Computed example of a mutant assay.
Amino acid sequence: MINLFKSEWTRLYSKKSTWICFISIPIMLIVFTNHYLKVNTTLKVSNPQFVQSYKFPIEVFQSYSMVIFDIISIMLIALCVTDEFRSGAIRMVLIRPVKKINLFYAKFLVIIITLTVMLTAYFLLAYIIGFIAFKDTSNISLNYFKHSLTRNEVVMYSLKVYLLELLSLIAICSLIFFVSTISKTMTIAFGANLGIIVIGFIFSPMLGLLTHKNNINLIKLQWLISIPKMQMDGIQAILGESSHLFFYGVGVLLSYGILFFLINYFIYKKSDILI
Rank of each mutant, 00 (worst) to 15 (best):
Y162W: 02
N143Q: 13
V117H: 04
Y127K: 05
V155N: 10
L115P: 01
Y122F: 15
F134I: 03
T150M: 00
K135S: 09
N139Y: 14
I129A: 02
I112H: 13
M118A: 03
V155I: 15
S158M: 00
I128K: 03
T137F: 12
I112A: 11
E153G: 04
T116C: 10
E153M: 05
N152E: 15
Y122D: 04
Y122C: 05
N139H: 13
V155G: 10
S148F: 11
A133M: 09
I128S: 04
K135F: 07
D136P: 00
K146N: 15
Y122N: 04
K146H: 15
T120H: 05
S148D: 14
I112N: 12
V155S: 07
A126Y: 00
E165T: 12
T116K: 08
I112D: 09
A133H: 06
S138K: 13
Y144D: 10
A121N: 07
F123G: 03
F131K: 08
K146P: 09
L149G: 01
V117A: 08
L124M: 09
F131E: 07
Y144W: 01
F134S: 01
V155Y: 13
T116W: 05
T137Q: 10
R151L: 09
K135P: 02
A126S: 05
L142A: 12
I112M: 13
Y144P: 08
M156D: 11
Y122K: 08
F134Y: 05
N139C: 11
N139S: 14
H147C: 11
K160V: 10
L115N: 02
I128H: 02
T120Q: 07
L164S: 05
S141N: 11
V161D: 05
K146S: 15
Y157L: 08
K160D: 06
L159F: 11
I112V: 11
Y127V: 06
L124P: 02
E165H: 15
L149W: 03
N152A: 15
H147F: 14
I112L: 12
I113S: 05
G130S: 04
Y157P: 04
M118C: 03
F131W: 07
I140A: 01
I112K: 11
L149H: 04
S158W: 01
M118W: 00
G130K: 01
K160Q: 13
I112Y: 09
N152T: 15
L119Y: 00
H147G: 13
L125A: 07
R151P: 08
M156W: 11
H147D: 14
L142K: 06
L125P: 00
L124W: 03
S141I: 10
I132P: 02
E165P: 03
F134V: 02
L149T: 06
I112S: 12
L163R: 10
L164M: 11
S158Y: 01
V154C: 07
R151N: 14
R151F: 12
M156Q: 11
I112P: 05
A121P: 02
T114L: 03
L115G: 04
F145E: 05
L164A: 06
L115D: 00
Y127R: 00
I128L: 08
I128M: 04
V117C: 08
